[in-house]
Nucleic acid binder design. Structure first.
Ligand SMILES: [Mn+2]
Ligand SMILES: [Mn+2]
Ligand SMILES: [Mn+2]
Ligand SMILES: [Mn+2]
Lengths: 219, 219
DNA sequence: TTTATTATTTAGATTTGTCTAAATAATATT
DNA sequence: AATATTATTTAGACAAATCTAAATAATAAA
């Protein structure tokens, strides 16, 4: 099955939005891909034809088994290139997504597997997301919660769910990265903001929106 | 100036076929790009519009100054990726051209320059071709001739001009690579074949076609 | 210098991916 | 339940990149 770049981007976004079993709506997908709902409908018809998605008019989209397999390959390439850019070319984590968005479309299993080997077969990418192996298998992630829902006081940062440059730049400024240890000082009910103390720094207050996008695990 | 992949491929092929100042014909370009003359004419009009080529109906194509600059950037990316694939991912020289053909289209100066640095700023690629620097400057190549025209007896291989998998695989089989030392034993006038002795091997006879595509320098 | 051959361009069509505007379906509100 | 709102699809258009077949220009051969 030979997919175009546009088809690959759609498949990957469906995978991203699907989260388990939920159906993906036309509007959500259009927003994610920065395109228009009408275009998504067009593409849905094509991907259904290719049996990569399940789709009935007005009923939303889910990946078929083949579609999921394809998506995992694209995600694998994307995340491996991100590792390469960060680990080898010394890019910082907020710079790599756009580049990987292009590099992911070079379809060569041999290249992908050699790259993985070269990087030491990493299992998580620079944003804490798991990297599928050559068979599309993901390591089952250690249990983690978003910072706004964490119970424990002392935590370690394991991933970031929003990978926009804006959030990542904010976290850079606050000295927060993967592996950073932090402590919850207070929750403020008024706006659900949280006061935290990053190890070795003075306490700061972060908004609910930021907290929702930081994944943590008890230390 | 934002070029599409198709435009970049055309620009690069024009650069390749131009060899100094010769004009490039529609047919030659179509053959090189594995497309049809009519398609080349279409693209020529577009590239002329963008001032990347000089082109008048029936008069052939040459790169403009801007076009040459663009071509050198693409060639730089292509050859750097080839180095990466060979030096870091351990591909062999006949496998890398097609992959680089795709990777070259990821347009990021930062990525290109970081990659170059990571590779130790190489100045020749795995086929012996020079790599333009960030300003598009090429190292002036040390004088070299094709093997069929070499005067000296003892020679060293400096480059390969035909980068088809077929030739490169043939050279692999015969133990010939960049830096290989060889000696000319005899020229056979009948078919212009050449008997050579690769250092440490028994003599072999190669066709004129092969000899024309091996570049050498006196040892 | 005619005539034949080859090279190049034009005309018109096709595929892919996208869009806007209008129509229709699904859902929410009164 | 009727109506308003929102979501989705359809219809029709467009740009990019390509193609085939036909027309024309340039070049080579007779
Ligand atoms: Mn992408
Ligand atoms: Mn990532
Ligand atoms: Mn290319
Ligand atoms: Mn090369």
């Amino acid at each position: 099955m030979n997919l175009s770049i546009a088809e690959e981007n759609h498949i990957k976004s469906i995978y991203k939005l699907q989260e388990g079993d939920a159906v993906v709506t036309t509007n959500a997908l259009a927003y994610e891909l920065d395109t228009k709902p009408a275009s998504v409908t067009d593409m849905a018809k094509k991907l259904k034809e290719k049996k990569l998605i399940e789709y009935e008019k007005y009923k939303g989209i889910t990946l078929s088994a083949d579609g999921r397999k394809a998506a995992l390959q694209i995600v694998r390439r994307h995340r491996l290139w991100e590792c390469f850019l960060v680990d080898k070319l010394l890019f910082s984590w907020e710079e790599v997504h756009e580049l990987a968005e292009e590099l992911e479309h070079v379809r060569s299993e041999k290249l992908t597997n050699r790259l993985s080997e070269f990087l030491g077969n990493p299992v998580i990418d620079p944003h804490g997301d798991p990297i599928p192996d050559a068979n599309g298998k993901l390591v089952k992630p250690r249990p983690q919660t978003s910072l706004d829902q964490a119970n424990a006081k002392r935590l370690v940062v394991t991933a970031v769910t929003d990978q926009s440059t804006a959030l990542l730049a904010f976290l850079n400024a606050k000295g927060i990265k993967l592996g950073t240890q932090l402590e919850i000082i207070a929750h403020y009910e008024y706006d659900n903001s949280i006061e935290i103390k990053v190890k070795g720094q003075s306490p700061i207050t972060i908004s609910e929106q930021v907290a929702k996008n930081i994944m943590v695990r008890p230390l």
